[in-house]
């Protein structure tokens, strides 16, 4: 944490009883301290406990493994291979899910008809269909995209549906009585109201899409980050396996926290 307080922050804290840098960033510093302590303890425990590299790894070995993976370009290649179906599947889920959700919310009867059906789909562990998808579509791109799509489409459907139903009817009436056209309704009332719901849905969908990537690659793949983890496990290369796991954790946190940040910045009125 090399954050130096900016003049504006200085001025801010000048009004309140002056607090030290440590006091102001107490929670963040404590968090960083805990993470550092965790890795230090992980490294240090093997001074006491015998180290078996076929069973566990150490932070220094993990870092070396990570550097090795980055230098050889294997990590980047695997990430790129996994990213393409992830992006395609998520894009498909966004388009289909948002469209379906908006129609379900806008047309009352469509909503009534599809709500139970979608609930049944959402509640059933659709991952269970992935062996079938692999049988139908073979080992590859199509199967991966479908698995990701099926897992991540439902948060979009339900959130868009909820977003439309949360639209203030008064606003619709205002647009109508002022002579607004249908397109005005969609652009000026519907979209601003639904968008926060869709972004919140995207946050949930990302986690599920990541599961889809891993399921697809554990089942049937010859490259990709999920395949890399499984293969390093088979090879007992635990340092590289841990390195890949940490990379996925960092990516997952970056994406969900990134969306959270976008939610706070773009729709501050919805911040909890």
């Amino acid at each position: 944490m090399e954050i130096v307080p900016t003049p504006a922050q200085e001025a801010d804290s000048g009004e309140a009883p002056r607090r030290s840098f440590a006091a102001r960033h107490r929670d963040k510093l404590l968090g960083i301290l805990a993470v550092v302590l965790f890795f230090a303890a992980w490294q240090a425990i093997f001074l006491v406990v015998p180290f078996n590299k076929l069973f566990i790894s150490k932070p220094d070995l993990i870092v070396l493994g990570l550097i090795d993976l980055i230098k050889s370009g294997a990590l980047l290649r695997d990430l790129a291979v996994s990213a393409i179906p992830f992006i395609c599947g998520m894009a498909l889920a966004t388009v289909v899910g948002v469209a379906l959700g908006i129609v379900m919310g806008w047309r009352r009867r469509v909503g009534l008809a599809l709500d139970p059906l979608m609930t049944v789909f959402y509640a059933s562990p659709l991952v269970a269909l992935s062996p079938l998808i692999v049988v139908y579509f073979g080992v590859g791109f199509g199967a991966k995209i479908l698995i990701i799509f099926f897992l991540s489409v439902f948060p979009f459907i339900f959130n868009a549906y909820a977003g439309v139903r949360a639209v203030d009817p008064l606003l619709i009436n205002v647009v109508r009585s002022m002579g607004g056209r249908e397109i005005d309704l969609y652009l000026k009332v519907l979209m601003p109201s639904v968008l926060p719901y869709i972004v919140a849905g995207a946050r949930i969908a990302i986690g599920r899409a990541l599961i889809g990537v891993l399921v697809g690659e554990f089942f049937a793949a010859s490259e990709g980050i999920g395949y890399a983890i499984a293969r390093f496990g088979d090879l007992y290369a635990l340092d590289k396996m841990f390195a890949c796991i940490l990379v996925i954790m960092v990516i997952a946190v970056a994406m969900t926290e990134g969306i959270r940040w976008a939610e706070r910045t773009a729709f501050p009125w919805r911040a909890q």
């Binding site: 805990a34 993470v35 986690g207 599961i211 983890i229 635990l238």
Partner: peptide, 21 residues
């Protein structure tokens, strides 16, 4: 404050990555 980074990281990560391990 000390547990928060771990909770955030493990909650965001699909549990499936740990399965081979």
């Amino acid at each position: 404050a000390m547990f928060d980074p771990f909770v955030t990281a493990f909650n965001a990560t699909p549990r499936l990555v740990f399965l081979p391990l």
